[in-house]
C-alpha cells in the first residue's frame, strides 16, 4: 500500500446522505478476481446521468459527501474503485463501519468531520478548489487560510501515512497468538465434517 503522508488536490462534492456501497460499485463488477481496475465502474449507474454531480469535478482527489457514507455491503471493491478513480481522501460526517476499515486497508483516508466544518470547507472550496489534507499533522488547510484539525486514531494514522501492511504487523505478535491458541481448544475441525 502506498504511503499517504499528505494530499493536495481539488474537491468533488457528492451531497447525499447514506451513499451505499451498492451505488459506489454495483454487483456486476464484483465478479472480477483482480484487485485493480475498478475506477471506471465507480458509481456506474449514477454516472450514466449527465447531471450527476461528480461529472463537475474532473481530476478531484478529495471526495466530500454526506453522513453514513459507504453503508451497506462489505465489498472492499467500493474503496478500491474510489482509489482507482483517483480519490485519496473521503471526508464525511460519518462512515459505514466496514467501509471505513476497508478504506484504510486500501490506502484511502476516511476523515470524519462535523457537518459545520464540512460546510466551512465547502465554502472555501467554492472560492478556490484546492485543499491540503495533511495526515501527519492531522489538519486540512486551504490557500485562503482555512485550517481544520481532524482526528484519526494512532493505528489508522500510522497505517495510512506509512502505507503499512496490517498482516505483517500482526505477525510480529505471533507469540501472543500461539499463547492464546495453547489455552483455547477449538470446538470443531471443519475438515472433519461429513460430506
Amino acid at each position: 500500500m502506498r504511503p499517504l503522508p499528505s494530499v493536495t488536490g481539488s474537491v468533488a462534492v457528492l451531497d447525499r446522505a447514506d451513499v451505499d456501497t451498492d451505488q459506489i460499485i454495483p454487483k456486476q463488477f464484483l465478479k472480477r478476481i483482480e484487485r485493480t481496475g475498478y475506477g471506471e465502474f465507480l458509481f456506474f449507474d449514477w454516472m450514466k446521468d449527465p447531471d450527476f454531480e461528480l461529472h463537475r469535478y474532473p481530476g478531484a482527489s478529495i471526495l466530500v459527501s454526506g453522513p453514513n457514507f459507504g453503508c451497506g455491503s462489505s465489498r472492499e471493491h467500493a474503496a478500491w474503485a474510489l482509489e482507482d478513480f483517483g480519490f485519496d481522501v473521503v471526508i464525511a460526517p460519518s462512515f459505514g463501519d466496514i467501509f471505513r476499515t476497508n478504506a484504510v486497508n486500501t490506502g484511502l483516508a476516511p476523515i470524519a468531520l462535523p457537518a459545520e466544518q464540512i460546510a466551512q470547507l465547502r465554502e472555501a472550496v467554492d472560492a478556490v478548489n484546492e485543499l491540503t489534507v495533511d495526515l501527519e499533522r492531522l489538519e486540512i488547510t486551504s490557500t485562503s487560510g482555512l485550517r481544520i484539525p481532524f482526528e484519526l486514531d494512532a493505528h489508522t494514522q500510522e497505517t495510512l501515512v506509512h502505507g503499512l501492511d496490517d498482516i505483517a504487523r500482526t505477525l510480529m505478535r505471533e507469540a501472543e497468538i500461539d499463547a492464546y491458541e495453547a489455552t483455547h481448544t477449538a470446538r470443531f475441525d471443519t475438515r472433519a465434517l461429513p460430506a
Binding site: 462489505s74 465489498r75 472492499e76 474503496a79 466496514i98 476499515t101 476497508n102
Partner: peptide
C-alpha cells in the same frame, strides 16, 4: 460481523 477483503486475508 462482516469484514472486507483485506481483513479476510488478515
Amino acid at each position: 460481523f462482516g469484514i472486507g477483503t483485506s481483513e479476510v486475508g488478515h
